[in-house]
Design a protein around this nucleic acid. Structure first.
Length: 327
DNA sequence: GCTATTTGACCTGC
DNA sequence: GCAGGTCAAATAGC
């Protein structure tokens, strides 16, 4: 009953977010970019959708418990729904290079706790693919999964495909994240020409909302924790709306930059063994993940902004999939 | 005893 | 029919 009311409320919230998007002023208010407004409304909508997803998933849903246990649980319709939802989850790929002699056979510690649930020999691949899901899946309904497979070309390289966002709010102890302004990186440097100190690149496949092929950096930028404090999302949203935050394309740098020229990726989560990561196609996000940092063009690239960022923990549903939004 | 891993079976999409 | 992805019972490790 309570559960149902909650779903009703969330559904209404989602619908209102959709309506809000349709009522966005055109042209946008001074100082605001249309992309930013659309992005925000979609963020709101996304949050509601994820909340609904979590509620529907709840394994303790009485309606599910009442179901007669059948021999073949895979026929369960709720399970089918879950599988369909899972298919729609954002997906991206990283290539992680590990040092020789490392314990890389494991799930590659990326700050989240994973539980292996399967391994499969892949046709045409020299190495099997391992399947991991979030340890907190049963407890918190976190649908995040990842697949780890050794590269055929280089056994030291693991292709890690993430799917879904962590809804368990695990705190990945990744530290500073430095991101460069895509506008400041020559096109030819978008791939494999990142700062050698921070060679973690990404492959973002599948879904595109705004064009940029990444959906979720929750793992890549695990919940965007800058410091130990929790997010003040309002502060972030408010500042994100500042003129120039989006319009000049510096938002990403400002949002996740430590404003330092040093490599800011704290890869200790990978056991400190990451030596480099290679990117393949569609690395639209590679420009966002660079050691090179420059936010000088951005009004938020000042000390005050950095200070406020110390408290920012990006919303777990924050989607960096807005190319138009960035450009 | 609890938790994680292994592995064969099952399901789904192409 | 095949390949990829997931489930879940069996097993191992603590």
């Amino acid at each position: 009953m309570e559960h149902k009311s909650l779903i009703t409320e969330l559904t209404q919230g989602k619908e209102m977010a959709i309506q809000l998007k349709t009522h966005l002023p055109s042209p946008p208010p001074p100082g605001s970019s249309p992309q930013a407004l659309i992005f925000l409304t979609e963020m709101i909508q996304s949050s509601f959708e994820n909340a609904l997803l979590l509620l529907n998933w709840n394994p303790k849903d009485p309606s599910e418990e009442e179901e007669e246990p059948t021999k073949n649980k895979r026929k369960n319709s709720s399970r089918d729904v879950l599988l369909k939802r899972r298919k729609l989850l954002p997906k991206w790929t990283e290539e992680v290079k590990v040092g020789s002699g490392s314990a890389a056979e494991g799930p590659l510690n990326d700050g989240h706790s994973w539980r292996k649930y399967g391994q499969k020999d892949i046709h045409g691949a020299n190495f099997p693919r391992c399947y991991y899901r979030c340890t907190h899946r049963n407890v918190r309904g976190c649908l995040a999964t990842k697949q780890v497979q050794k590269s055929d070309n280089d056994p030291n390289i693991f292709e890690v495909t993430y799917r879904g966002q962590h809804t368990c709010n695990q705190s990945a102890n990744l530290g500073l994240i430095s991101v460069s302004n895509r506008n400041e990186i020559p096109e030819e440097t978008h791939q494999n020409q990142q700062n050698p100190n921070s060679e973690i690149l990404f492959n973002f496949g599948e879904q595109q909302h705004f064009g940029l092929k990444t959906e979720d950096f929750d793992d890549v930028f695990p919940p965007f924790c800058f410091g130990s404090e929790t997010v003040d999302e309002d502060v972030f949203l408010e500042q994100m709306m500042e003129p120039g935050f989006v319009a000049d394309g510096n938002w990403s740098a400002a949002a996740v930059s430590s404003a330092t020229s040093e490599t800011a990726w704290d890869l200790s989560g990978y056991g400190g063994e990451i030596q480099g990561v290679q990117s393949s196609e569609q690395s639209n996000m590679t420009e966002m993940v660079s050691a090179t940092t420059s936010v000088t063009n951005s009004p938020i690239g000042n000390g005050d902004w950095e200070l406020s960022l110390d408290k920012i923990d990006f919303d777990q549903f924050f989607h960096f999939d807005r190319l138009d939004f960035i450009s």
